[in-house]
Design a protein around this nucleic acid. Structure first.
Length: 506
DNA sequence: TTCCGACAGTGGGGTCGCAAT
DNA sequence: ATTGCGACCCCACTATCGGAA
């Protein structure tokens, strides 16, 4: 009765075919063929696996626990369903001795896998399938395989909060997908923002008029209220209601029977100014209602009292938001066509201690996922001239290139490491720095993953801010560091000092 | 023919809980 | 009590494909 069940080997060979081509159309075709071969009850697992993910949120397995694997099987026999069941058992394990039990499960699973299957299994557990296709291309493949329009798949996935749960519906046809609606209590995929260097640039992209919203430095929350019941979800749709009882209580008090709100949760000091992100992160990561209280600040509304507002223009949604949510729980905003007024607002927001602004087109509906959407964030950027004190070999497409640089600020006695970065490098820069830092190497560059170098090369680094660190000796680390350019017009002796970096903390 | 939107890849720092030591 | 790992919070940037202009 198990004949016809899809083999893991089919997933693996599809994944290898997808990885072997750079053409997106060819990737989609390969994915679609595999989706088309799945039975209805296999489809959720197959959909997840083809996008390089598991259905289990946590398995307890990671890179470290998969360093030593049992000998591989000679022939492929594992079915997709068996693999899913094995991960399901692992995800349910907890308590004393669970590591041993989990290791035994992992051993049995990997021992039944061929070499190629072991490679894929390890990659999917660590989130490193790297086949050049994730959820988005799998959605395209679903549309192709089921013969339905891509926008119908995307919209259903947005409203259901997942591609996996709508995969089967795609094969029922366009009407079945269209029947997927917003359900209060079921989180929807969040709308994301692209970024721009200035308010003016953002406004130029959107046309007029715009909403200039305050960008708070906390964590994204989606609140669902149904009667007295409130659920709070994060950006990845993890339910954190139990960790934010004070937020749930506030939402419960809002004058609506059913409600879906989008916003940010953040800790605020007694002076009314926002606290550093690290404090919000600490408070929201734990269940204990400690002294630091998190407050919600909402900036959008997707549903109220039986009415979905997803397709309604932003200005009309904001009118509803203002009607339901008191001002102290909304993020401050300005609606304008005037660039100067918008820039002044952004300046005021920054002096109030906030992260920046998000510029939004007033006429746009709410649309999940799409990076190049109608929301554009603008944040100030700082720069420092630092010294490269080490570098690491890259992986994936950066294999064979020295990639991730260690950054040092000038200290009273040598250079003090304050972070690393791999961002902002072009392929040309990667080639150049591989040669340059091989010359400056203090340790054998080919004997180790990380290479120490003579602190001579100055690099201009952009970053968003400085945070307290227990990892680095100076007690500070850069947030979102990226390379602007290498500077040959400055010597290491002219680099910025650790004191300069530490002053950013105030 | 050129341009640009969308996508995937490559990793960064910090926080916690949990199980093993 | 401490430590290491896994999970998840915040994320920027470049290369590339393929459709739009």
């Amino acid at each position: 009765m198990f004949t016809g069940d899809m083999l893991l080997a089919d997933i693996v060979s599809t994944s290898n075919a997808v990885a072997a081509t750079r053409s997106r159309k060819a990737k989609v075709a390969a994915l679609a063929e595999c989706l088309g071969a799945a039975t209805r009850n296999e489809l959720p697992v197959v959909t997840a696996y083809l996008s390089g993910s598991l259905l289990q949120r946590r398995t307890g397995l990671g890179w470290r626990s998969l360093t030593a694997l049992p000998p591989p099987a000679a022939e492929a026999s594992l079915t997709v369903s068996e693999v899913h069941e094995a991960f399901e058992r692992m995800s349910r394990l907890s308590g004393s001795g669970s590591q041993v039990a989990r290791a035994a499960e992992a051993d049995a699973l990997f021992g039944a896998a061929t070499t190629a299957e072991q490679v894929w299994l390890r990659a999917v557990v660590t989130g490193e399938v790297r086949q050049g296709a994730l959820d988005s291309l799998v959605q395209e493949a679903l549309a192709v395989a089921a013969g339905v329009p891509l926008p119908a798949v995307r919209r259903a996935a947005m409203l259901a909060g997942s591609t996996v749960v709508v995969a089967g519906l795609a094969f029922d046809g366009e009407e079945a997908l269209a029947d997927v609606g917003l359900v209060v209590g079921r989180p929807v995929l969040p709308m994301l923002a692209s970024s721009a260097g200035s308010v003016e640039e953002a406004m130029a992209k959107l046309g007029e008029p715009v909403v200039v919203d305050t960008k708070l430095d906390g964590i994204r929350i989606q609140a669902h209220k149904s009667g007295s019941e409130v659920r709070i979800a994060t950006r990845t749709l993890e339910d954190i209601t139990a960790r934010l009882p004070e937020v749930a209580e506030i939402v419960a008090s809002f004058p609506a029977d059913t409600l879906v709100l989008d916003g940010e949760a953040m800790t605020v000091g007694p002076d009314g100014r926002p606290r550093p992100f690290q404090e919000t992160a600490s408070r929201t990561a734990t269940r204990s209602a400690a002294d630091a209280v998190v407050s919600p600040y909402f900036f959008d509304i997707l549903h109220v009292d039986g009415r979905d507002l997803i397709d309604v223009a932003l200005d009309q949604r904001l009118a509803e938001l203002d009607r339901i949510v008191p001002e102290r729980h909304r993020s401050p905003r300005l609606v304008t066509v005037d660039t100067e007024a918008a820039e002044q607002f952004a300046t005021d927001v920054l002096s109030a201690g906030h992260e920046g602004v998000v510029v939004k087109g007033v006429g746009l509906p709410w649309e999940a996922g799409r990076r190049g959407s109608g929301w554009i964030k603008v944040k100030p950027v700082h720069t420092l001239d630092l010294v490269v004190i080490g570098i690491e070999w890259g992986s994936g497409r950066r294999k064979g290139w020295l990639s991730n640089i260690h950054l040092g600020a000038r200290g009273p006695d040598g250079f003090v490491m304050i972070g690393k970065t791999f961002k902002g490098m072009t392929d040309q820069m990667l080639a150049w720095q591989t040669e340059r830092f091989t010359e400056l190497a203090l340790t054998d560059p080919h004997s180790d993953w990380a290479v120490q170098v003579r602190p001579e090369q100055v690099v201009e680094i952009a970053f968003d801010g400085v945070q307290r660190s227990t990892r680095y000796p100076g007690g500070v680390a850069l947030r979102f560091a990226r390379v602007v350019r290498y500077r040959d017009d400055k010597t290491a002796a002219e680099a910025d000092t650790i004191e300069t970096v530490q002053r950013f903390l105030d």
